[in-house]
Each structure stands twice: as structure tokens, then as C-alpha cells.
Design a protein around this nucleic acid. Structure first.
Lengths: 223, 223, 223, 223
DNA sequence: GATGAATGAGTATTCATTCAT
DNA sequence: GATGAATGAATACTCATTCAT
């Protein structure tokens, strides 16, 4: 068997298909970001200017599409963490990470739904978390070594802080899309090494394993 | 209890009706709390031991039921705020309010969904908030007069803090139902008067009117 | 708990519901009988003059409806077998059973599909067969004791004969709906005790267990 | 490889095309045989190692492919009939025809579906039958002239017998692939000249024209 | 009033068929 | 000619809401 069509560049159909795939992904991002995961694949298709069938040709089902999108976001999150680690000042790195991660999350309703309700893609979420874990741990430990961060803070705390900020952000989304920065400032302030009169944090933080269990524990459901 | 709407003696049906209403509300709380807002009204009705028709007699539609539930929660929060105002120490009052409100609100998936995505609940939520506002304002201003609370904190911030804690709490509900206390401690610490090197909070807090708008702004329904 | 509504006759809603259930069942029988199992539940609903939702209220899914119908038919089959056993002449009983069973099967495309393709209700079919088995066995053995039936015939053969006749019947359904009687006569003739020159049947008949395996072996699928 | 589309000597494309056609037909036989007619044309194409488009170039639609397949089978049956006519003994010829035809047709789910429900295949099936008719007639009449075959048997009966056997054969395919021989023996026995007490066959056989109508009558398509 | 039966628009998904490359 | 990407009508099933009893 010889290569059928290989004289010059890429295969033409391939190009079309990939173009469409991208178009669908972009449309899905937009639709899910603004209307949440409950948006129809028909909506996505219409938004992308293709038929539903085309969406299903590229992604076996809604879940797969959502997961592909999620994967993309996790990549962005990881990139943010990497950049934060590259930042020479450990404190700036840490707070910058929080800020940028929150910027990412606060504007994406679909992503929020995935993280908070595990409507789809529990396993991917898990994998994403696993990928983030060492990066966040590195950020936290570096800052603690430098004496810039409260000693009793744990890496898993960072995720909760993210969630809390996200929650605030999404709550005010329409009216004051930036208020979450107030609460970031507030929390950032609290992250600094304990001052006089600061009581140690009460309950222990979640272990990484417990954090994983959290994701598993989230009841499945549409929203 | 005073007779609400009649002109003569006792109205036995009234009592039955109210009883049913309560029964439905209790059932709804349970069902929505555990299964989220996606639970069907049939589920709620079955749980309450009544027919769906009865649910519809008491609440014009699903949204109204959800709103009534939310209002109930706000009512409970208002009671907590009242108690907090009765507390002689303004700082203890304030932090106690946060703690107790969070104890109340944690582990309620339905509530979490309302707060984060609010497919339902705009109007009552609004009304509830209006009811809370003066109480929280009093708590905040009293603590600031005493120099116990950061000066740049605004009453609306308290609600956001509450929401953030609630979000963290219900997120970890199954795995570590008390971790939210870590974040309460963290935030409480940040609420104390600014120390050296503390930057003022950046973005302005929401005004009460904006806060009201938040409630109205929440995107509505399935579409 | 007291009976809620029991003063006089039946409960009114119950009557409506049961009426509708019957109407749906009748409509389904008609639709599946003529168009096969691939007919839509929307078709059935339209035929019954109700909404699809009503069909789904009575039968959790298409399969259940089909199975309910099947159950009914099996009941009729069993009744036919019972009647055949009550017939004093064992030969008349046996051939009468074949004839009536074939009359039943030949006019019902849906039933044929169930039996031949197990699109739905494999388990019910199995159960039905189990119910029929002893009756057919009795019919066969009685006729053999009387010396009216070929000695090397086995009960499972009767089912195959049924299937073969059904197959012929369905094939000619539109053009000559009665030709199957020719082949019934042909086979009936072959069922009589062996005459001179009749070779014994070659391959052994299926055992009841193998017969059960046949049903399990039929590949699932829509048609 | 030679020039595809030229006007003069050999027609090489013809060869390629025919090759593809055969490949598709073989693939279709395999796929439909095992999975039934519900298998998708994508399946068939994949199995054949060609694109769906190619399938559609050779066969205007799914129905045509199914029909072509059926015609092929009929062609094979015709060959068997030819061979049977060459057999010196008319009885052996006749029963041998039945046996070999059944060997050919058994264990073909797709065929069974065509025969029993024929969502597809009206026209070609028709043509195929036309081709069979004279051969079978010859077989039957020769045996009757020799006094070896029941006098009231008609040529069209042979097709029905064939169908019945095929139906039994494919029904037990997985469990006892040879049981159909029992029923061939049974029917063969019944084909011998009537003995004492044998009633004449009741309903008249189909005329060739009616037989043709059978093929046309098969209810068509989905809904 | 209470009940639960009926309704039907809405959702994810499949697959025969067309058509640009 | 061949390919496989695109299309969209069709299908099973759900659930908020209405309404007869």
C-alpha cells in the first residue's frame, strides 16, 4: 500500500475538519462560559454555524466536548502556575497565581459548574487536580521558605481560596465583575505570616488525598 | 399567631393549608439540599407525602418554592444577626454572626446552586437581602466604632464573606465538614484593623443598591 | 390510616387511568402488530389519542410496554395450550394447538419480532417459554402415549414448527394470509407415526436448556 | 495501474470498480449477516476498507445494497437448482436442492430479516425470484412425473419450505447449527406421495403471480 | 381543597445521505 | 473516482405545569 495522497502539504479535508473542530470548540467555550453547561449542543452547533451532526462527529457526546474544553482550561491554569513559579519573588508569584487563576475562573460559568458540581468529567477534573497539585505545592513551600507566607497554610488551602474567590466573583459577575479583587486583597492579607494576636488556624487542612475525595464526593447532576 | 386574612372566627382549613405548606417546605429543603435544584417537584411532593397538585397550589411554580426556601434561610440568618447584635462585645458579635450563619448554611447543595448560578430565586432573594441589610450594617458599624474591625470594610462585604465561606463549606461537606472553620479563621484574621504594610482594599465594595442589583442580575432559567 | 375514598364504587381517577392504560395497550398492540416494534411511542400515543407523556407515565419505557404486550400474548398462548390439553382427542389437541398458536402469531408482526430478534424483553420471553414448556410437553407426550404422534418428536420441536409456520405466514401475509395452513397440513402429516420407509429424524432435538440458550443467543438489535 | 477513463482498448477502471463493488458486497454480507440489517453503512464501509462515499457510488442507497446482496443469494440458489436438475434421480435432486439451499442460507441474520420483515429489498428480490421460478418448477414437475413427489405440491411451495427451514436454521444458529436437518427430514418425509389417510393440502398454493406479489407486498421501510 | 393523571416542548444522540475536496 | 466531513430529520425519554375528578 502506498500513501494515497501525500505529494505536498497537509491533506485538504484534514484542514477543513480541524478548522471546524476549532470552531466548535470556540463556540462551545463561548456558550458554556456564558450560559453554563445546561446549554444545548444544538446551541453550540448553531453558534458554530455547523449542524449538530458535525459536533457529534468531532466529540462522541456532550461530556467529551465539555472535557476537551476543561482540558484546555487546565492547561491554562498550569501555565499560570508555571509562570508564577518563574517569578523571582515568591510572594508575588503566589498572589499573582491566585489573581490570574481567579481571572480565568471568574469569567467561565461552565468551568465553575464543572469544578463545583462535577456534572461531567469527574475523572478529567481529578487528573487536572493531580497535575496542578505539585505546582501549587511548590508555590506554597517556596513562599514559606522565604518567610513570606503563613506557616500553617497548606497547599490544599490554596484551592479552597480559589473556590471562595470564584464563588464571590460569580456571584457579582453582572454587577461588579471586579469586586472579587477586594476579597483577594483581604485573603492575601490574611496569608501573610501571623502577626501578634493571630490565632493558629483551627481545623487541619485537607490532605491531598482528602482533596481528591472531595471531587469524588460531589454529587453528580445537571445543575 | 394572629388571623391573617379573615373576618370571623377560626378557619380550620387555614391551619391544614399552613401545615401542608410547611411540610412541603421541609421536604423541599431536604430534597434540594441533597440532590440539588435539579430534583423534580414530583420528588418533593412524594417526599412531602402530598400530590404535585398540592405543591402547585401553595407555590405558583418551582421557582417560587425555591425562593421561599431561600427566604426561610435568610430569615434564619436575620435571627442570627439579631442575636449577634444582642451580644455585648462587638467583635464577638460580628465573628459569631459569621460562624453561626455559616453553620446554618453549610452543607446545602441547593443553596449553593442558588448562590452560584441562581437559576431561580431572584425576587425573594432580593427581599431577604433587604431584610438583612440594616442588621449587618449595624453589626459592622458597631465593630468599627469600637476599633475592632478594619475601617475599609463595608456591610456588603459581610455577605460576600458569608457566601464564600458557605461555598467552601458545602464543597468539602462530605469529606471534612468542618474545614470551613479554617477559612473563617483566616478571614476573621483579615478583618482585624489593618496592620503595618496592609494595603487598603482595592476595588470599592458594592453599595446596597448594587447588592440589590446582584440579586436581580443573576441569569435566569434554562434557555 | 383509613381508606381515603372508599364509600362506594371504584376511585374515579383510577378508572380514567386504567381506561387510558387499556387504550394505550390496545393502540400499542395495533401499531406494533402492523408496523413492527420499530414504531415510535409517539405513534402509539397518537394512535391512542393521548400524549407521549401519558404513555411514559404508564410504562417506564418502550421495552416495558412491549413486554406488557408480550405478557398478554403469552397468556393467550398458554390458554390455547390449556384448551388443547382439555380436548379429549390428543391428536386433535396437538394439531389444534399448532393451528391456533399460528393464527395468533401470524397476525402480529411485533410478537414475531420479539420472538425472532429479542429486540426487547429477552427475560420475559424466557419466562414465557418456561411457562409454555410443561404444557407443550404434556401435549406431546400425551399424543405419543396414544400412538398418534411420531415417537421421535420432542417438545422443543414443536416450537421450531411454530416458528417455521410463523415465518411462512408472515412472508405471505399481504398476499395470501392463509397459505400457512398448507404448510401446517404438510407438517401435521409428517408428525404422524412413521410409515414404511420413513427414516428416523437425524440430528437430536434441542434439550429444553438448549432451547433456553437459543433465546439468550439471539443478538440484540432494533431490526 | 492503467489509465482510468479512456475510450479505447480495455476498461481498467471497470476492473477496479468491480473489485470495489465486490469488496463492499462481501463486507456487507459479513456485517449484515452478523449484526442484522440495522448495521450502519459506515460499518459496512469501514469493514470494506473504503469510504462511505464509495459505497454510495456503487449503490444508490442502503436498500439497493441489501437488494444486491439478496440477489446474490438468489443467484447462488439458482446455481444449486441447476446442479439439482443435473442430478439423474429426481427425488435426490429435489431434496438435495432443499438441503444445499438451506446450507447456503442458514446462519444469515440479515437474510432472515429480509425474508421476515423486508424493510428492504422488494425489487431485486422480485427479480431473483423470477429467475428461480422455472428451475424450481422443473425440479418439482420432474419428481412428480416420476411419482416420487406428492401430487398436490406446487413449485411455489418449495420456496416457502426453503424459507421455513432457513428461518429455523438461523434461529438456532448459535446453539445447534444443524437442527434444521431435523426439520428438513420431517418436511422431506411429508413431501413423499400421500399415504393412506393423508388429507390433501387445504388452501391452494400461491400462483407464480401471487408469489411475485408477495415480494412486492412486503411492507416498506421505517415508520 | 387535594390529588395525580395528562400534556408536550425540550434534550441528547444516531444515521442515511449529500457534497466539497 | 474516492474520500470522509457535514447535515438534519428522527427517536427515546424527562419534567414543569395544567386540569379533570
Amino acid at each position: 500500500m502506498v500513501e494515497p495522497d501525500r505529494c505536498d502539504p497537509v491533506r485538504p479535508l484534514r484542514r477543513d475538519a480541524e478548522q471546524n473542530r476549532q470552531r466548535i470548540l470556540r463556540a462551545a467555550a463561548e456558550v458554556f462560559t456564558t450560559r453554563g453547561l445546561q446549554a444545548t449542543l444544538d446551541d453550540v452547533a448553531r453558534h458554530a454555524g455547523v449542524g449538530v451532526g458535525t459536533v457529534y462527529r468531532r466529540f462522541p457526546d456532550k461530556e467529551s466536548l465539555v472535557e476537551a474544553l476543561f482540558e484546555e482550561r487546565i492547561g491554562q491554569m498550569a501555565a499560570i502556575a508555571d509562570k508564577a513559579l518563574a517569578e523571582p519573588d515568591s510572594w508575588t508569584g503566589l498572589t499573582g497565581f491566585l489573581e490570574q487563576a481567579c481571572e480565568l475562573l471568574s469569567s467561565d460559568r461552565g468551568l465553575r459548574e464543572i469544578l463545583m458540581f462535577a456534572t461531567y468529567g469527574r475523572d478529567r477534573v481529578q487528573a487536572g487536580r493531580t497535575r496542578m497539585q505539585p505546582l501549587v505545592t511548590a508555590l506554597v513551600e517556596r513562599a514559606q521558605r522565604d518567610g513570606k507566607l503563613r506557616a500553617d497554610l497548606r497547599p490544599t488551602d490554596m484551592l479552597f481560596i480559589e473556590f471562595m474567590l470564584t464563588s464571590a466573583a460569580s456571584y457579582a459577575e453582572q454587577v461588579s465583575p471586579q469586586v472579587w479583587r477586594r476579597y483577594l486583597a483581604l485573603l492575601t492579607d490574611a496569608l501573610r505570616p501571623a502577626r501578634d494576636g493571630t490565632a493558629p488556624l483551627p481545623v487541619p487542612a485537607l490532605t491531598p488525598d482528602e482533596m481528591a475525595a472531595v471531587m469524588r464526593s460531589i454529587p453528580h447532576g445537571r445543575s
